[in-house]
Amino acid sequence: MAQVSMTVNGKAASGDVEGRTLLVQFLRENLHLTGTHVGCDTSQCGACVVHVNGQAVKACTMLAAEAEGAEIRTIEGMANADGSLNTVQQAFQDHHGLQCGFCTPGMVMSASALLAENPNPTEAEIRAYLEGNICRCTGYHNIVKAIMAAAGQDVSKIAAE
């Protein structure tokens, strides 16, 4: 067992972990932040995306020990200070960018990272960026529309699918 310490959603967090403990396990099991989902355990689905030092990372591919000293942001830390939805979350709600909700935390985290890197992405850039996130329900159209809306783009002419 080893002690790991990091900052998660602005708060100091630490715990004892085995060397093989994945970051997603530490977040869910030790810190009880269950918004970060485990969908595949093989880095294919993107349901476990979190931000590590500002970068989108699949938490099922990173050991908790590798996050020592890091700044971690999970879906639980995405809301505004007053508890209201942030711009990306609100856009997902407004534009029906979710159905069952299983992939939504990872999608929101990936979308936020994309918009931090590219504040005005095209539809093609959004679709390319989301290639590591799988959604079985929405068909992606409304997810893309939500991200474009979060970027402040006019989506009124995009046909419903």
Rank of each mutant, 00 (worst) to 15 (best):
M1E: 11
M1F: 09
M1C: 09
M1T: 10
A2F: 15
Q3M: 11
V4C: 02
G10N: 03
A13T: 02
A13S: 12
S14Q: 07
S14V: 05
D16V: 11
D16P: 09
E18T: 15
G19P: 12
L22I: 00
Q25H: 15
Q25R: 14
F26Y: 06
F26H: 00
L27H: 00
L27P: 01
N30K: 13
L31M: 15
H32F: 14
H32D: 14
T34L: 08
H37A: 07
C40R: 13
T42I: 11
G46Q: 05
C48M: 04
C48F: 08
V49N: 10
V49L: 07
V52W: 00
V52K: 00
Q55M: 10
A56V: 13
K58H: 05
K58F: 01
C60W: 01
C60Y: 04
M62Y: 03
M62I: 09
L63M: 08
A64D: 00
A65D: 00
E66A: 00
E66S: 05
A67S: 02
E68G: 01
E68Y: 01
A70N: 01
E71P: 00
E71N: 11
T74A: 06
G77R: 04
G77I: 05
M78S: 06
N80I: 00
D82Q: 03
S84G: 12
L85C: 09
N86T: 13
N86Y: 08
N86Q: 15
T87L: 14
V88R: 10
Q89R: 14
F92V: 06
Q93I: 14
Q93C: 14
D94Y: 10
D94L: 12
D94H: 14
H96A: 15
H96S: 15
L98V: 14
F102I: 07
C103N: 04
T104V: 04
G106D: 09
M107D: 06
S110Q: 07
S110T: 15
A111Y: 00
S112R: 13
A113C: 13
L115K: 05
N118P: 06
T122S: 15
A124M: 11
E125M: 13
E125K: 05
E125G: 08
I126L: 07
Y129H: 14
E131A: 08
N133Y: 05
I134A: 04
C135W: 10
R136V: 12
R136N: 10
R136L: 12
T138M: 07
G139Y: 05
G139K: 11
Y140C: 01
Y140L: 09
I143M: 07
I143Q: 06
I143A: 04
V144C: 03
V144Q: 08
V144A: 12
A146M: 07
I147V: 10
A150L: 10
V155T: 13
A159D: 07
A160R: 15
E161F: 11
E161Q: 14
